[in-house]
Design a protein around this nucleic acid. Structure first.
Length: 260
DNA sequence: ATGGCTGTCTGTGACAGA
């Protein structure tokens, strides 16, 4: 079972690139973020032609998340439970059927800039709700994958130059602590667990030749419940997606899991 | 090079992104 997370920065503007990458990475489940279209506007037919079922939660212009799966998608939860007042489309969760069912969430965590400010408080509040949901899911005692663009640089070793990011919401101690607080419930981050090299990135800005200079940050993460961590065998950052024509500024992060 | 990117919209510049 291969499960990926990928912020595509508009599914419509990126459709050809997305389909090319989906064929290459050959995953069973792909969690998409920043689809930037309304739920009804998702290009369902094109993705279904690749063999995937699709469940999406979108809104006009911004944000938006989706789960693609070759296996049946069941019990879809749209929006982050306990955070029903949030009008932004940032969370969808569902059960992926099969011999070993997985509960999978596609998460687009708020950016939080500028720091400090209301948007940063919104980010921290959102992370508090995510932690509460993560705790609930542990009680399900099944494999859980919380996949997404967390918009958090976990440590200074996960960016090219900590000084550049020091005043940014993505690198604030509060943002990092809120991510660790979720992990401290009992979640394992797939990259930390299965690779762990420093200075490996999932995002490179479009500006200033960031990709060519490898000026990136690692902000896309796969959080695994203990049941999932036991099944995890490898992780890959699909870096070559950033070098394609008309790329997203993020690349997929892919986890491989044994099916017990 | 007082800049340098990309996407969205009842758009043609403002905003959001990170």
């Amino acid at each position: 079972m291969k499960i990926a997370s990928w912020n595509v920065n508009s599914i419509k503007a990126r459709l050809e690139t997305v389909m090319e990458v989906l064929k290459s990475i050959d995953c069973d489940v792909i969690c998409l973020q920043e689809i930037k279209c309304e739920t009804d506007g998702f290009p369902y037919l094109e993705i279904e032609d690749l063999g995937y079922s699709v469940e999406a939660l979108g809104q006009k212009s911004y944000n938006g998340v989706a789960i693609l799966s070759r296996l049946p998608i069941e019990d879809v939860q749209r929006g982050l439970p306990g955070n029903e007042d949030d009008e932004q489309a940032r969370y969808i969760e569902a059960t992926i059927g099969g011999d070993t069912p997985f509960r999978v969430a596609s998460i687009y965590l708020p950016n939080g800039n500028p720091f400090p400010g209301e948007k940063f408080e919104y980010k921290l509040n959102w992370m508090t709700h995510l932690r509460a949901r993560a705790k609930e899911l542990l009680a399900w005692e099944m494999p859980v994958v919380l996949a997404g663009d967390y918009n958090v640089i976990p440590t200074d070793d996960d960016c090219w130059d900590p000084a550049v990011w020091a005043d940014d919401a993505l690198a604030q101690p509060e943002s990092r602590a809120a991510l660790r607080a979720i992990q401290n419930l009992g979640y394992t981050e797939a990259y930390d667990c299965l690779d762990g090299r420093s200075h490996q990135y999932t995002f490179w800005d479009y500006q200033k030749g960031a990709w060519q200079k490898d000026h990136g940050i690692r902000i896309d993460h796969l959080l695994l419940s203990p049941e999932t961590a036991d099944l995890a065998s490898s992780v890959e950052i699909y870096k070559s997606a950033r070098g394609l024509t008309k790329p997203s500024d993020h690349v997929p992060i892919i986890g491989t899991f044994e099916e017990g």
